[in-house]
Design a protein around this nucleic acid. Structure first.
Lengths: 165, 165
DNA sequence: TATTGTTATACTCTATAACTATA
DNA sequence: TATAGTTATAGAGTATAACAATA
């Protein structure tokens, strides 16, 4: 991403200052047309880039964003049901069931019968240990993102995004 | 989404002003823990909400965001190759091939052999006609998003997002 | 040899429906 | 009847690899 930004700045500068074309992208930039007015287009591109960095940084623990979100929300809300976790994270119960199966297989999460039909979710002690390392990597990822956006802008951006729900 | 925002504001107001709990969500809000510090988490939620609105609004034309982006970029850059379009939109050539197959089947896009190995892409006249209606719907979608975010904030947001590349 | 487009495979995520067992 | 969890299926999107035709 940084490379792209640099390239654009270089290309922009080249127009005014007649820099050598070395810094300009070799493949001509296409017109995006109406896409330039679409919030969703830029949102999507940035989201993909941020998730890619997350996945790359968390690769040592082989953890995807959705799995990470479930782990930290279970830690912050021990004993809640799958339905509650799913609702908080907008994860379909069908998908959450499979996702939890995987986390249970890795012995990071424990399901205790609470209701006969509902399960209470807890981290195992092994899960707690893993999560320490996981949160360290996640923090590194977030630092990479912060270094990338200017800090104040990042806070502003998170603030704007939170408003949407 | 609007409902969520309202609920939050109501919940926030209730703390200070002791409003009736009627406006507070019936299901207790879970802690998000470290998720609150993650740009990617909020980006993802907003992106999903925006795409959902896009898909719903464009449903009369049965057009997904990726298909829309290809149509408008082909219109803005007639005669370019699949490789060029794919690169501009970050769409894998394998995926773009299937996506174009579908648009060709609907007679909206035409591939003319240019090089022997590469194709030049153009809208058909039927594609042009369809795109008029499609852009109308897309504009409606964008207006819905704009009504939803406060206009200045939306411009600021798009501006921030563009910086990422 | 490298590039363009194509087909095929696998995995993630989303969206349903159908099913069980409980409340 | 409604809810909680499960399984299965289908589609979009992403990531590869392998391949043919061409430069």
């Amino acid at each position: 991403m940084a490379a792209v930004t640099k390239r654009r700045q270089a290309a922009g500068a080249a127009i005014g200052r007649k820099l050598a074309p070395v810094l300009v992208s070799p493949t001509e930039m296409l017109e995006l047309g109406p896409l330039n007015g679409h919030l969703g287009y830029f949102l999507r591109r940035l989201q993909i880039a941020v998730f890619k960095d997350f996945i790359r940084t968390l690769a040592p623990m082989k953890l995807r964003p959705a799995q990470y979100s479930v782990l930290v929300v279970v830690e912050a809300n021990p004993g809640r049901s799958q339905a509650a976790i799913g609702q908080a994270l907008n994860i379909e119960r069908a998908r959450l069931a499979r996702l939890l199966h995987d986390l249970e297989r890795r012995q990071w999460i424990e399901r205790r019968a609470s209701d006969g039909r509902s399960h209470s979710l807890f981290l195992t002690s092994e899960g707690e240990r893993a999560l320490v390392r996981i949160k360290g990597l996640a923090k590194r990822h977030e630092a990479q993102m912060a270094a990338f956006v200017e800090p104040r802008r990042r806070v502003l951006l998170i603030d704007l995004l939170k408003d949407f729900g």
